[in-house]
Write a protein that binds this DNA or RNA. Structure first.
Lengths: 189, 189
DNA sequence: TGCTAAACGGAACAACGTTCCATATATTCG
DNA sequence: CGAATATATGGAACGTTGTTCCGTTTAGCA
């Protein structure tokens, strides 16, 4: 129940929703790095209002995509439970993440950007997803389906990096990530 | 013998060299995306002069790093000749490229940037290195050391992407690339 | 219907890439 | 050894962005 404090004004709530909707649209068309003014214009608001509700771009990006990240995090344990093999669960989970990331123009770039402002975004994604990935890796290793040859953190960053630049007829992140996971199989004797 | 045409002015040559030297220093410290003014200041020249000699950032980056890219391209056939196994040659060649790329702050980012201006840079690297990589892959595949599971173009882009963000105690592009190459080994029967 | 705190809008500033042309200077030629 | 001239230079100026700030507006309430 968020009924604490001196009740936020209705127009503020309305405008925040408008910014969120505008950002979602603009992110989808222009990309996650779209100019602030473009988002403000689309929402029919001034840039000051936008900054009031979302002080940093990270705040805005997170507000737009948080649900999908959470869904992805939740999918990990579910897949591990529902699919027979932990390795298959890992593969499906990674595929799901790649499908999410590769379609968000510029998001993968942002995630690894060394710009100070994006550190929080980077941290959120990793904090949320690395533990899930670690569980999947551990289960697959315990089942003898993969070698414990990589840390979840490193794997997640690698997957994120491979998604940068999207996908075209000559480059498909999914293929390379399959190869990466193939590299985790036990060595031939 | 470049003694054709109306002989370029001596100061022009001198200034071009100065820009090149300044750019090399600034790229190494600030990164490949350093502000144009910073490079011009370091060279003791105006920005106009810099733009005259290097109209685009791609021109400047290429002038600074061309030698190393060429050296990397030349190393491919040499390694294939000198090392016993094509797969070992591939691995060593890839390592060499990664060592080059991972130490150039921001260069890997630039290579995959979808900004229109960097297309030429992207193209130069790929045109120069993909054929070399393709030869190494073909040789290793012919020797039965790897499966023909990836195109040279895709592999090179993947390697470039994995180098983005450099290397720290928790993320080492080299480890992931090793894993990627492991994924090319023939499947256990 | 006023009052007041909350919220808004957009002008203003800083940092950057890029262009342009008045000025300065190598080089050449008489 | 001077002009003459093509070449080269410098940096002001413009457009685009992110970000801040404050005068003005307005929702909620008494």
């Amino acid at each position: 129940m968020p009924t604490q404090g001196p009740a936020r004004r209705a127009d503020a709530q309305r405008n925040q929703d408008a910014v969120l909707a505008a950002a979602a649209e603009v992110f989808a068309t222009t990309g996650v790095n779209a100019p602030v003014r473009q988002i403000a214009d689309r929402a029919g608001l001034g840039v000051g209002t936008l900054y009031r509700h979302f002080p940093t771009r990270t705040d805005l990006v997170l507000a737009v995509y948080r649900h999908q990240v959470e869904a992805c995090a939740d999918a990990g344990p579910a897949l591990l439970r529902d699919l027979g093999s932990p390795a298959a669960a890992l593969r499906e989970w990674v595929d799901q993440f790649v499908r999410f990331l590769a379609t968000k123009h510029g998001l993968a770039d942002m995630l690894q950007s060394d710009a100070a402002g994006y550190h929080a975004l980077h941290a959120y994604f990793l904090d949320r997803l690395v533990p899930v990935c670690a569980d999947l890796l551990a289960a697959a290793a315990a089942a003898g389906e993969i070698r414990p040859a990589v840390e979840a953190y490193e794997l997640m960053r690698g997957i994120g990096n491979l998604c940068i630049g999207g996908r075209d007829e000559n480059y498909d992140p999914g293929r390379l990530i399959t190869l990466l996971l193939d590299g985790l199989r036990p060595l031939a004797h």
